[in-house]
Each structure stands twice: as C-alpha cells, then as structure tokens.
Design a protein around this nucleic acid. Structure first.
Lengths: 217, 217
DNA sequence: AGTGATACGGAACGACGTTCCGTTTGTCAA
DNA sequence: TTGACAAACGGAACGTCGTTCCGTATCACT
C-alpha cells in the first residue's frame, strides 16, 4: 500500500529543480490549502469536503488525490498555519522592540488559535492523522516564542520566570475557553497576561513567588 | 416549539396512575435507554441510531418520537446514568464502613466515566442539547460524594481538606486521560488517590500543606 | 506535433441523521 | 366484548456526508 510515486524521489534529491511534479497539480494543492484554511476558519473544521473543493475551483477527486482522508487535509492546513505562525516570530523580532515583538506575536498566535474551533475535539477523536500534531505544534511554536521571550528578558522588559510552553498553553486556553462569542474578550485577557509579564521585569521581588498563583475556579 | 403533550400533565398530577401514556410506549422508551447505554458503552457515543434501534427491537421512528434529535438520546442516557451513580451513594453508605463506602463509590463513578469516551468531545460540540449537562452532572454527583466524604471525615478515616468537586474532577481526568487502553491503569491510579485520602486522616500534619501539590507535567 | 503518463471532474456508492406515511395497537366508552 | 379513534408503530425514502471509480483532459518531454 501507499506506492512511493516516483515524483517524490526527485523532490528530495534536488530541492531546486522539482520537475516531474506537474504545474497544475502544485497549483491545485496550493488553492486547496488556501480554500481549506478559509473554510475551516468560517465554518469550522467539520466543513464538508465538497465546500472546500468548490471554493478551490477543483473537483472532489482532486482533494482526495492530495489528501487520502479528510483528516489529512485538516492536519496539513494545521501544519501550514503552525509554520506561518512560527515564521512570524523572527520577523517581528527584527522589526520591533523585544516586548512589542512579543506582544504582537502573541496576538498573532491568538488569531491562529481562534480559527481552530472544533479542532480540539478532533485531536482527541483518535484519528491517526492527528497523532503527530501536538508534537508538531510544540516543536515549532515553543522555540519561536522562547526566542522572543529570551530577547525581552535580556532587555529587562519582562520577568524571567515564565517558560514558553506554559505561556503557549495559557494563551491557548484563554482564547479557546471564551467560547464562541468572546474573541475580543479573549484578546483582552491575553493583553492582561502580557502586562503581567511586564510587571515583574528586572525585579525578583520577594513578594512575588516564582510561580504564578493558581488561576481561580 | 416543543408542544407539551397532554400525557405529561397527568403524569405530574398523579404519580401513581400514569394512564394516557400507552404501555408499549413506556416499554419501548425503557428498552431504548437500556440499548443506548449498552451501545454507547461498546461503540462510543457516536454509534449509529439504527444500531441502537435494532438492539432495542424498535423502529427508527420510535427513537425519534421519544428523542427529536440524536443528541437528546445521548443526553437522556447520560442523565439516567448520573442519577443511578448518585443514587448508589446512600446505598453504599448504609452498607459499608465510611471509607469503604467511599472507595466503592469512587470505583462505581470510575466505571461510569469509563463508558463516556467521546462524550467529552460532544459536550464541546456546541449542541444545545448538551448545554445543561455539566450542571446536571455537578448538581447530582457533588452532594452524593460530599455525603460520603463527610461521613469518612467524621469517622476520622480520611483527611478533611479535600472537597467533593475537586475529587470528582481529579478522578474523572484520571480515568479519561489514560487513553483507550489503560482502564485498569486508571483504576489503579484512583486507588492510589484513595490511599492518599487515608494518609492524612486525623492528622493535620505540619509537613503537609493544605492543598495538594500541583500535578506534574 | 505526437504520445504516454499524470492529474482531472463528477457521477456513483454506502452510511448516516432525519422525515414521512400507511399500518398496527392500546385504551376507553358503549 | 366490541367498536372506534387517537396514539404509537415500522420501515421506506430523502438529503448530506466521506470516499471511490472511471472516462476524459492536460501537462511534459521527444
């Protein structure tokens, strides 16, 4: 099962000349990912495959040629967005002051999470296509955030006792837990969190324990 | 919408004579709930309606007459099991020593949770039929467990700084988080938790903080 | 320009949730 | 008991979904 397909061989060997992959195939794959991202954002990850195919201007079979199962498409879109979000970190880091870059990236991350309604449930559905996703998420986003955090700490603009992963989880929960309505409310909470990071900057503060207080409720 | 149905009126007025509800209807409803419970337990809450109807020896339309939507059936089975689980508490409390009753009830509760794979996802699906379920869960199970806890504390058999709701959540997470395989492993962890309750009995213990340590990871 | 592999579109399939409707069955009055 | 009517029934039928199949069109290379 799963014949290798002689195209992929060349693709890995010579990253520049990726011939033997037909132009229309590549074009359709891009359109598909783009359409899926848009549709998932508006209708959730449970949107029908037909709707995505229609939006991409493509037949249904084309979807299934690139992604043997529906869940593979979901996973591919997810990975692509993780990549884009991670890639935004160094760009922002170069363009802004450390703490500003951090704030902007967290907002970027927030809007990424906001489009993922319904995916949290899918992740626990047991579909093997999603097995590798949590690890992919962490492996890419944690270093991206970590670098921004480090820079801000070095600049003395934020406290130094918060780790990237816990911040990722906290912000993620903050924007998901607000339900369907409070996208703005979630963003406000994230801003509050960022101010919290600023508060302890360059001040080990005897009154502040090294761990955040347990969130109430 | 949701016409009252003249049958229910009498049902409330005279608890004994519940005429005007045809005998076969009541019989089928019971069979349906029973079958759904069994099927949900083996095939998960996503099992087809047809399978449940077949198991109950009933037509599909009969299912939809009693439960206008599939999710209503799921909710009804859930409520029924919550009721049964809550009702087990006083029974066990009368039949055993306090800490033994507590342990038995928690295991009972564990096996209830174990059949709920896939329901956690359904709860967050946004279906209005599930809106009231979390509150129903807590309102019934928390007092049931609380009474067992209180009895065990009064008997000096367990520590007194654990609240019913946090224990409900902890045991719930413990048995759900173990994934598909570790039903037994989950049960072992719950037993461990019960031993933890015993440990601090009648001993305020200066070395033990009043709150459990944060779970690692 | 010709040719063979590659990718395409859309009809078709099976399974699902849900609805419809002709038929059966329980209940109550006579 | 029997008759009649509302209540409840069963299963075919509908629309939608994920997925597969297959005849056709398109790209890449000579």
């Amino acid at each position: 099962m799963k014949q290798p397909g002689r195209a992929e061989r060349l693709e890995e060997a010579s990253p520049v000349a990726l011939r033997t992959v037909r132009a229309d195939a590549r074009r359709n794959l891009d359109a598909l990912l783009e359409a899926a991202k848009a549709v998932f954002g508006t209708s959730g990850v449970d949107a029908p495959v037909r709707e995505i195919a229609a939006r991409a201007g493509v037949g249904i079979a084309t979807v299934y040629r690139h992604f043997p199962q529906r869940s593979d498409l979901v996973a591919a879109v997810f990975r692509r967005e993780v990549d884009a979000c991670a890639a935004a970190a160094p760009t922002l880091g170069r363009a802004h002051q450390p703490v500003e870059a951090l704030a902007r990236w967290l907002r970027r991350y927030t809007s990424f999470i906001a489009t993922k309604r319904g995916l949290a449930a899918a992740l626990h559905s047991g579909d093997p296509a999603f097995d590798a996703l949590p690890a992919y998420f962490r492996q890419n986003l944690e270093p991206a955030l970590q670098s921004l955090l480090d820079a801000a700490v070095r600049a003395g603009q934020i406290r130094d006792d918060v780790e990237a992963y816990e911040l990722l989880r906290a912000v993620g929960n903050l924007t998901l837990a607000t339900g369907d309505d409070g996208v703005l409310q979630g963003r406000r909470m994230v801003d509050l969190l960022i101010d919290g990071l600023r508060f302890g900057a360059r001040a080990p503060a005897a009154s502040l324990p090294s761990k955040r207080r347990r969130p109430q409720r």
